[in-house]
């Protein structure tokens, strides 16, 4: 499907711990995602899925653990076992390599769809405006919104806004996409259009880490499913195994409750 070596690790997480006050939300997460892989993270709310995603691009700062993006240690430098946190600029540079899509879209309301998409390529990467616009039009076409470039976010439906948000993240040519419950805030009839966009993206070989409650998407699109509970990875396996024959009791219980609805 693509010429990337399937074994090259794009995102590696090692021994990640995170507290919110007394609440130990991540209790030692180890995870490796290869280039081109689509990994879905499922689990009950409060299990730490979103926090894990937010730690990977440093929107939350983990107290312990290492994160590597495309083989490079991110957000800190290690010298003889001692870690030194990166400067804000260096952190921003790592984030620029990761696309993130949020539950509540978080489009910039004062900019048009076009403005949202070219903002970071122009002002972070220093891309010439005309090139950024050309690429933005391609991306809008890809997400099915070629006629919406002049629309402001509040003139768009939730599903359209989320597709613009995906295009905005793609405009940075990210090495991987982090998607945080991107369909949870949408009206049911708008979910399908966003999932279709994500399927296309997966088919193009984009590396994706997707926190989701859409079990059908996880089952059909992902190369691997991770089940998280209480800040730990309980089980990870192919979708066939997770949904067909989960090994862990907690996985079975969770899937029973969500699939019964």
């Amino acid at each position: 499907m693509n010429d990337r070596r399937p074994t090259r690790p794009m995102i590696e997480v090692e021994g990640l711990h995170k507290h919110f006050g007394d609440n130990h939300v991540l209790r030692g997460i180890d995870l490796a995602i290869a280039a081109g892989e689509v990994v879905c993270v499922i689990g009950p709310s409060g299990s730490g899925k979103s926090t894990l995603l937010r730690c990977i691009n440093h929107l939350e700062v983990a107290e312990q653990g290492r994160i590597r993006i495309d083989g490079e240690l991110a957000y800190a430098t290690e010298k003889r076992g001692v870690f030194r946190p990166h400067s804000n600029r260096a952190i921003a540079a790592v984030r620029a390599q990761l696309g993130m899509v949020f539950q509540h879209f978080n489009l910039f309301p004062h900019l048009t769809a076009m403005g949202n998409i070219i903002e970071a390529p122009v002002h972070v990467l220093g891309k010439p405006k005309d090139l950024a616009r050309k690429r933005a039009r391609e991306l809008l076409t890809q997400v099915g919104l070629a006629d919406k470039e002049d629309a402001y976010p509040e003139e768009l439906s939730g599903g359209q806004q989320q597709r613009v948000a995906i295009a905005r993240a793609l405009a940075m040519d990210p090495k991987a996409m982090l998607m945080d419950e991107v369909t949870s805030a949408l009206d049911p009839e708008l979910v399908a259009e966003v999932l279709a966009t994500m399927r296309d993206l997966a088919a193009q070989g984009m590396t994706m880490l997707v926190v989701t409650h859409e079990m059908n998407f996880a089952r059909q699109v992902s190369s691997r499913v991770i089940f998280m509970d209480q800040g730990m990875i309980v089980e990870e396996d192919s979708p066939e195994h997770i949904f067909g024959a989960p090994r862990e009791r907690r996985t079975r219980d969770f899937l029973r409750t969500v699939l019964e609805r």
Binding site: L59, N88, A92, R95, G99, F102, E119, A120
Partner: peptide, 15 residues
């Protein structure tokens, strides 16, 4: 969410 989105796009704080 606006701060998050800007940060996630690699924008430094002042930008």
């Amino acid at each position: 969410g606006q701060h998050d989105a800007a940060a996630a796009l690699g924008m430094p704080r002042m930008l």
